[in-house]
Computed example of a mutant assay.
Amino acid sequence: MEIAERIRLGFQRQRKGQVLVSQDDLCSSLLFILDGEVRINKKSDAHNYELNEWTSQPLVLQPESLFGLSTRYTRTFTTETAVHILKVNKDAVRDILFYYPTFRINFLNLLSMRVQLANRQLWRPAASDLPLRFVQFLSSRCLRPAGRKELRISMQTLADELLTTRLNVSQLLNSLAQEGLIELKRERIFVPSMEKLLMGKV
């Protein structure tokens, strides 16, 4: 309550289909998704494939982008349902971090967890077989390794990323589809449950 009395907080309701932030937008505030469903989109640097994720869990939109060398969002967040958000501008975040040790510790813990997870992924042994390489390729690009995913990518681009042939990728994807772990459409790979894909192949 003390923070709410001293710091101006912005509570908002956004309707379905609203872009909250876009990839490469400047991050000038902390945005908290309090309820509702959000789609998260990430395009590759070469713009030759992209990943969509969906989440209905409470979420802070990329707090690591608020300070540091690069202060731009690396993903686009779009509402899939009506959502309630809390917006705290950068100056207010500085004040909260300075005056409230509990918030400061929680914020540092959140950033530390993200750095540690990213560092752990970098040193994970490369998979020797193709199914595991595909799962690692997908999971390493996810914001969270759970829920629905959609990878928009050509067969040839995926083959290049996995260091194999287009034929091998086609056989792999058809096998995963037969197991019910993915669904295939033209240049789209749907994963109904990332958890099931991980349990089935890792």
Results as ranks from 00 to 15, higher is better:
Met1Arg: 08
Ala4Phe: 06
Glu5Ile: 04
Glu5His: 09
Arg6Tyr: 03
Arg8Ile: 09
Arg8Gln: 15
Arg8Cys: 07
Leu9Trp: 04
Lys16Thr: 14
Ser22Glu: 15
Gln23Pro: 02
Leu26Val: 14
Ser28Gly: 13
Ile33Tyr: 00
Ile33Glu: 00
Asp35Thr: 05
Gly36Ser: 05
Lys42Leu: 07
Lys43Leu: 13
Asp45Val: 08
Ala46Val: 03
Glu50Tyr: 14
Leu51Asn: 00
Asn52Gln: 13
Ser56Trp: 05
Leu61Asn: 04
Gln62Leu: 06
Ser65Asn: 10
Leu69Asn: 09
Thr71Val: 11
Arg72Pro: 01
Leu86Arg: 01
Lys87Asp: 12
Val88Thr: 05
Asn89Leu: 06
Lys90Asp: 09
Arg94Ala: 12
Asp95Gly: 04
Leu97Ala: 09
Phe98Trp: 14
Tyr99Thr: 14
Tyr99Gln: 15
Phe103Ser: 02
Arg104Lys: 10
Arg104Leu: 05
Asn106Ile: 12
Phe107Arg: 05
Leu108Asp: 11
Asn109Gly: 14
Asn109Gln: 15
Ser112Asn: 14
Ser112Gly: 11
Gln116Arg: 11
Gln121Ala: 12
Pro125Glu: 10
Leu132Glu: 11
Leu132Arg: 14
Ser139Tyr: 01
Ser140Leu: 05
Ser140Asp: 15
Cys142His: 01
Arg144Glu: 13
Pro145Cys: 05
Ala146Leu: 05
Lys149Gly: 01
Leu151Glu: 02
Arg152Met: 07
Ile153Ala: 03
Ile153Trp: 00
Ser154Pro: 07
Leu158Lys: 01
Glu161Thr: 02
Gln171Pro: 00
Leu172Glu: 02
Ser175Glu: 13
Ala177Phe: 04
Gln178Leu: 07
Gln178Tyr: 07
Ile182Ala: 00
Lys185Pro: 04
Pro192Asn: 11
Ser193His: 04
Glu195Gly: 03
Met199Val: 08
